[in-house]
Design a protein around this nucleic acid. Sequence first.
DNA 1: ACCTCAAATCTAATATTTTCGATATGTTAA
DNA 2: TTAACATATCGAAAATATTAGATTTGAGGT
Lengths: 127, 127
Amino acid sequence: MNTRNQYERNAKVFKALCDSNRLMIIKMLQTGERCACEILEGLHIGQSTLSHHMKILIESGIVAGRPEGKWMYYSLSQEGCEAAKNLLDDLTRVKDNGNREEWDLGDLKVRVTMSSCEDARKMEGKN
Amino acid sequence: MNTRNQYERNAKVFKALCDSNRLMIIKMLQTGERCACEILEGLHIGQSTLSHHMKILIESGIVAGRPEGKWMYYSLSQEGCEAAKNLLDDLTRVKDNGNREEWDLGDLKVRVTMSSCEDARKMEGKN
DNA sequence: ACCTCAAATCTAATATTTTCGATATGTTAA
DNA sequence: TTAACATATCGAAAATATTAGATTTGAGGT
C-alpha cells in the first residue's frame, strides 16, 4: 500500500534532481569520479553550498561518496540511478482498471472506481 | 551544448515530481483520466492549491488537460512521461572519457579532462 | 605539536514553493 | 438573465530550499 510517507520518500529522490546546480554536478559525474574541489571549480557557488548539494545527492542514493585522505570523491551510483529510473517507470506506467491499487486516501478508495464526475454525482447522499 | 538554461528547463520536469501531493495525483491518473473534483476529494488540500499543482504538472508535460464543459479532465501524457524518462536516462548514463561533452562551465572544460585533484595540482600556475 | 588544506556543519539571509481564502472567469441549468 | 457550479487566478502567509560566511572537524605534511 502507498502511504503518505512513501510519497514523501519518493519525492525526495526527485527533489535531488530539481536543482540546476545538482543537475550540472550529475552531468560532471557521468564521465567518472570527481573530487569535490574539481566540481567546485566548475560551478559558481561557494564551498559550503556545494557540500550541501552533495549531501542531498548522496541522501537520494543517486551519488556515492568515497573519502580518500583530505579529499572526497563523488561518483554516480548505478544502484541509485536504477532505483530512480524504476521509480519513474512505476509512476508513469498506465494501469488498467482491474489492477487498481488501493490508495491510502480515505474516501477516494471508493470514488476512484467511478468513471466520471457524473457518476459521482449520482452517489450523492448515498454515503 | 548544455547551457545553464537547459539545466533550468530540465530541472523543471523533475520539480513537477518532487512534491508528494503531485506524486499522489500522478498515481491517481495511472488508472485513467480523472476530473479535478475527483482528484480533489482524495487529497487534503484546497481547490486553489490543486489548481496550482495541476498547472505545474501540465507545464512539465507529464499531464494533459482536457476541458469538457464545466469540468477539467486530467490524464498522463505518454509523450511527456517518455520525455521525462529519456531525460533521466540521459542524465544517469555513464559516458566514457572519449565521448566527453563540452559543458558551458568555463574553466571546467579543461579541468574535467584530468583524473584527479593531484593532477590538477600539477597544473597550478600554468593557466 | 603545529600548520595547512579539504570538506562538513552551523547560522542567518534571501529566494522559492506551497498553501489558503477571496475573487474572477466561464459553463450549464432554470 | 440569473443562479449554481467547477476551475483558474490573485494576493498574502507560512513552510522549505538555496546560499554564503564563519567555524569546526579531520587528514596530512613539516
